[in-house]
Simulated assay, not measured.
Amino acid sequence: MTDNTESLILEHLKRFQVGQDRIERKLEEIITRMGNLEISVASLRRDFGHSEEIAASMSVRVDRLNERIERIERRLELTS
């Protein structure tokens, strides 16, 4: 009876080990995928920040052009 009990316990332990190995592989996969998502989010934030920088730069340029146009209109007395 003792051999049968030990064999049964050993089989259960082997099944637990197989299940634990499967869980560990899945966890490693999830960690890798999460890391890839973090990299993607950081890239999107960088791209968004760069776009905001470009938009701000364009706004400054438009403001300068607007000032120049207004100055030209005043000199030519084109303002109403």
Results as ranks from 00 to 15, higher is better:
1 M>F: 14
1 M>L: 13
1 M>P: 04
2 T>Y: 01
3 D>G: 01
3 D>F: 01
4 N>D: 11
4 N>L: 06
5 T>C: 07
5 T>E: 10
6 E>H: 07
6 E>D: 13
7 S>W: 00
7 S>Y: 02
8 L>H: 03
8 L>T: 15
8 L>R: 15
8 L>Q: 10
10 L>T: 08
11 E>P: 04
11 E>F: 01
11 E>I: 00
11 E>M: 11
12 H>P: 01
13 L>V: 12
14 K>T: 12
14 K>M: 11
14 K>F: 05
15 R>M: 05
15 R>C: 03
15 R>G: 04
16 F>Y: 04
17 Q>F: 01
17 Q>A: 11
17 Q>V: 09
18 V>W: 02
18 V>S: 08
19 G>A: 00
20 Q>C: 04
20 Q>T: 10
20 Q>R: 09
22 R>M: 11
23 I>D: 05
24 E>C: 07
25 R>A: 15
25 R>D: 05
25 R>C: 03
26 K>G: 05
27 L>G: 02
28 E>G: 06
28 E>R: 06
29 E>R: 09
29 E>F: 05
29 E>Q: 10
30 I>Y: 03
31 I>M: 13
31 I>L: 14
31 I>P: 00
31 I>K: 14
31 I>D: 10
32 T>Q: 02
32 T>W: 01
32 T>K: 14
33 R>V: 11
33 R>K: 14
34 M>G: 06
34 M>V: 13
34 M>D: 15
35 G>N: 15
35 G>R: 12
36 N>Y: 04
36 N>C: 08
36 N>W: 03
37 L>Y: 02
37 L>D: 02
37 L>V: 04
37 L>H: 06
38 E>C: 09
38 E>K: 09
38 E>P: 08
39 I>N: 12
40 S>G: 07
40 S>M: 08
40 S>C: 04
41 V>M: 09
42 A>D: 12
42 A>I: 03
42 A>Q: 15
42 A>S: 09
43 S>N: 12
43 S>V: 07
45 R>W: 01
45 R>V: 06
46 R>S: 14
47 D>P: 07
48 F>E: 11
48 F>Q: 07
48 F>A: 14
49 G>E: 10
49 G>S: 10
50 H>L: 14
50 H>M: 04
52 E>L: 13
52 E>V: 13
53 E>R: 11
54 I>Y: 01
55 A>V: 14
55 A>G: 02
55 A>I: 15
55 A>K: 00
56 A>I: 15
56 A>N: 13
56 A>Y: 01
57 S>W: 06
57 S>I: 07
58 M>W: 01
59 S>C: 05
59 S>V: 08
60 V>N: 05
61 R>G: 00
61 R>E: 09
62 V>N: 06
62 V>A: 14
63 D>H: 04
63 D>F: 03
63 D>S: 13
64 R>C: 02
64 R>W: 02
65 L>A: 06
65 L>R: 09
66 N>A: 07
66 N>D: 09
67 E>I: 09
67 E>C: 01
68 R>F: 08
68 R>E: 11
69 I>N: 10
70 E>V: 07
70 E>T: 10
70 E>C: 04
70 E>R: 13
71 R>W: 00
72 I>G: 05
72 I>Y: 02
73 E>S: 12
73 E>A: 08
73 E>N: 14
73 E>G: 02
74 R>K: 11
75 R>I: 06
77 E>Y: 00
77 E>L: 05
78 L>W: 01
78 L>K: 15
78 L>S: 08
79 T>D: 12
79 T>K: 13
80 S>Y: 00
80 S>W: 00
80 S>N: 06
